[in-house]
Every structure is written in structure tokens, then in C-alpha cells.
Design a protein around this nucleic acid. Structure first.
Lengths: 244, 244
DNA sequence: CGTTATCTTGACCGTCGTCAAACAGGGTGG
DNA sequence: CCACCCTGTTTGACGACGGTCAAGATAACG
């Protein structure tokens, strides 16, 4: 007889990596009621203008925040990987100001918002953990603003790839070998403020320079430090070495 | 004999407008120890890479967050008006990932971080208020990303002006008459990802269109709805009508 | 195996950046 | 009160980065 693993464990691990949680705190998080759901590519999790009722944890797959402009342009605001809690952003806001959408097929756990709000108020260590993960998200958002506002196409694309590879990096494996890239060039463009055509040109140019290598939906990094250099990337803003 | 007004009152008012605080909560905030300081234009309040020890409240004047890129470009990340708490962003982070600087001469109250951290943990209503103001900042940050990534020069500048006028608007007075604009064109450019030269051209063009009017350091809005339109501005993201 | 989304490439064009110089304003000191 | 400087604004000429449009190649998927 096998013990089923609680899907929320990935959320607890994420929190523990940033803030110290007691055994009780961890237990309270694992005891949260949730409904698990499988979503197809491009499904909306939250829509702009809606009142959010749930917070959800991304169990597998990738997702992104997104906002569209009346002229038709779409801006991707952040990218999320398994273990991320989507919609902490809306924990106390009455109305969502942006959309959250899956990038690939995903599994998601929906937690009714009141339960998480109760934990925020009742257990200050969890409150701190929630706030901390919001602070890290805000920091990444600031770096994206710098990216779009002050780097040229080459730097923008390189920076996005550096960040993505750094974030999904598993601790044992060296950063910079290769990773799966679930984004289309259209989506990369929407994230860094370029047209898909120019993203294509930029990627090809980076590839002929020997800074990266593409194959089906993966991306390899033959010259990781060269790419870091091209991106002007410094991982400080990810606050990954924040002590717990 | 006059009763001196506590400078922290503006912070408490700000919190109260977003989240419900009890009389005790308000008292605890007003009882925070602080040192008041007058700062000249361009003074650094927090520097990138530093460990923040204080949180500070902007009592008068204007300030901004900023990040510089190795190529020399500077990106302004947010603008702050009196009553804002700078450096809630660093409440739980070991190292700051950006600079905070005054835009004009300012008065600032420095609160040692541990005291605010204690209130966050001890009084959950204050914790909620802190989190809420971070959520609103994050929302503004998202809108800025959309602004820089997906609007043209005209829209970007117009949008910045709309946001600024909306935020400093005092409840009684109608938005859109006129307001003081403490930014140089250089700073406007750093905020929206343009060169100062092009900001100048854009402002002049908006002025000849009759969408705004400039005089010394003030800006008037003869056609407020026209400017809103040019900016594609919707105030939803400011979450100003968030119920307390 | 056909249909659709995504990628790729080329030619052309426009928005915005760059460089440089003149102009206005506000403070300081003689 | 005026010369002076410094910062910020204004304007023009020119060039480049990236957008637009369009067509063909490739890959994904039912």
C-alpha cells in the first residue's frame, strides 16, 4: 500500500526554501482543502475584471500572466513554473487587473481564497512566507521592466532565456546545459516587447554566434557565460539565496 | 498650546483607505519610533546591493525607484508621492535589488525595520494593510510593463501623465484640471523607455494637439478625456476603489 | 494525409535614437 | 543689477533598430 503524496507539497517546499516554517505551519498548509484539475493549453485561470475566489497552485506545466492593450498588443507579465502559487496577487484585491493563462497543458490545485486568508491572519510565519514570495515576484517584475525599457532586442531575448534557465534549474544540475522551452516565438515576443519576426531573427543571430542551440522544443547553452554576458544578467534579483 | 501632528499620520491614513484598521492598530502605527530627516534632490534612500535596515515614509516631496543597466541606461521603476511607504519592498529581503532616490527635496521618516516587522507579525490587520499596499504597487508595476512593452511613444507619455495626475488627485477636486509635475524630461524618458529628446518631441506634439498645456513646472489638462483616450488609460489597475 | 499553427526569410519602411548646437531659466557671486 | 554657469529644454539632420507585409518551409496534430 502506497501513501499518496499530497500535491500541495510542492507549494510547502517552495515556501520553506524562503521562510522558516514550523511543522505545524507545514501541516496547516497541507491540510488546506483543494480541488485538482487538469487544464489544456491556453486555458484561463483568472480573467481581468473578475473577482478572484480561489488561489491556485501550479502542480505541473507552465503558466503566465498577461494583459492586453486596446490596440491589440499583448504583454506577458510573468512566467510561472511548477510549484508557483498563481494568484497570490489577488489574495486581497476585489477585482483582478490581469489575466492568468496556462502556457502548456497543466495540472492545477484550486484553494478557496478564504482558507488561505485565514492562514495569513492566523499564522504569521505563513504570512511572512506569502509576503516574501510576493516580494520576489515584484523584484522579477522590476527586472522585466528594465529589460523591456532599456535593453535592445538581443539583450532582451538573451535575458529572458537566462532567467528561465536559472529558475527551472534543479539544484544538483549545473545551470547552463540545456532545458525545455515551452514558449512559442510569439510568446517570447509578447514577454519582451518585440514582434515574433524579430524574435526569430534575434534567436537565429544568437545561435550563429554560438551562444545557444535549439532543437525541437529544447534549448541548449553551449556558451552559458557568453549568454549571461550578452544579457547583462545578474541573478541577484531572483533572491534565490535569500536565507530562510 | 498646539498639539504637534504626528508625521506618521499620513501613512496611517493611507493604510486605512485600503484596509480596515482598529483604533489599537492605528495607535500602534503612530507609536512607531522614527527619525525625521530632510533630504536634498537626488539623495539615495536605499542603494542596490545594500542590506536595508529601515523602512521609510515619504512625508513631503517625490521619490522614485530606479535600476541601472551596464550599458548606462537607467530605468525608473515607480514614482512615489507623499504618504507612500518606500521600502516595504525590502521588508523581508536581505539585499536590495534596486535604488530608491528622491526626485525633489523631501522629508522622510525612517522607521527601524524590526519594529515594522513586529507589527506585521503581531497585528494581522496591519499585516493585511502592508500586503495590500504591496499588491497595489505590483499592479502598477504590471501596467508600466504593458506601457513600455506595448505602447508607442505618444501612448507611453500620455499614460504616465494620466497615472500621475490620477494618483496625486485629492478626492474633492476633479481630476484633469492641472497639477505640478516634478519630473524632468530626462526622468520621464527613463520611466517610459524613451530618450529625453523624443520625450520632448512627444510632449510638444501632445501640446499642439490640445491634449495638454505646460507652464513652468506645472501641467494642465485642457482635454482630459482626450488624453485618457490617447493613453488607453483605465484606472482599474490603481485599485483606488478597493473597499476597506 | 490533409490542415493548421509555427517558424523562417526577404524587401521595405517608419519610429525612435544619436549627435550636435542653440536657447531658456534659475541660481550664485561679483 | 548684471555676468556667469549649469541644468534642462528645444530643434534639426541623419541613421539604425526593429516593425510590417508577404510568401514559403517546417512541424504539429487530428
Amino acid at each position: 500500500m502506497t501513501i499518496p503524496i499530497n500535491p500541495l507539497l510542492c507549494m510547502v517546499r517552495r515556501f520553506e526554501s524562503q521562510a522558516h516554517l514550523s511543522v505545524d505551519d507545514g501541516g496547516a498548509l497541507l491540510a488546506l482543502p483543494f480541488t485538482k484539475q487538469a487544464l489544456g493549453e491556453g486555458s484561463y485561470i483568472v480573467r481581468e475584471g473578475q473577482a478572484p475566489t480561489h488561489c491556485c497552485v501550479l502542480l505541473s506545466g507552465f503558466a503566465y500572466r498577461q494583459k492586453t492593450h486596446s490596440n491589440g498588443g499583448r504583454q506577458i507579465l510573468s512566467i510561472h513554473i511548477p510549484g508557483d502559487i498563481l494568484d497570490l496577487q489577488n489574495l486581497f484585491l476585489d477585482v483582478s487587473d490581469h489575466n492568468v493563462q496556462t502556457m502548456t497543458r497543466s495540472e492545477v490545485a484550486f484553494i478557496p481564497r478564504p482558507y488561505l486568508v485565514d492562514l495569513f491572519h492566523g499564522r504569521s510565519a505563513i504570512g511572512k512566507a506569502i509576503l516574501l514570495s510576493l516580494l520576489v515576484e515584484a523584484s522579477i517584475s522590476r527586472e522585466w521592466l528594465l529589460n523591456v525599457g532599456r535593453r535592445d532586442a538581443r539583450g532582451r531575448v538573451a535575458h529572458l532565456l537566462c532567467e528561465f534557465a536559472s529558475r527551472i534549474n534543479v539544484p544538483g544540475e549545473p545551470v547552463g546545459s540545456s532545458c525545455r522551452l515551452p514558449m512559442t516565438q510569439q510568446q517570447i515576443g509578447d514577454a519582451v516587447g518585440l514582434t515574433p519576426v524579430h524574435v526569430n531573427r534575434t534567436l537565429r543571430s544568437l545561435e550563429t554566434e554560438g551562444l545557444l542551440h535549439r532543437s525541437n522544443h529544447s534549448i541548449g547553452f553551449p556558451d552559458w557565460s557568453g549568454l549571461l554576458n550578452a544579457a547583462g544578467f545578474s541573478s541577484l534579483y531572483l533572491h534565490a539565496d535569500q536565507q530562510a
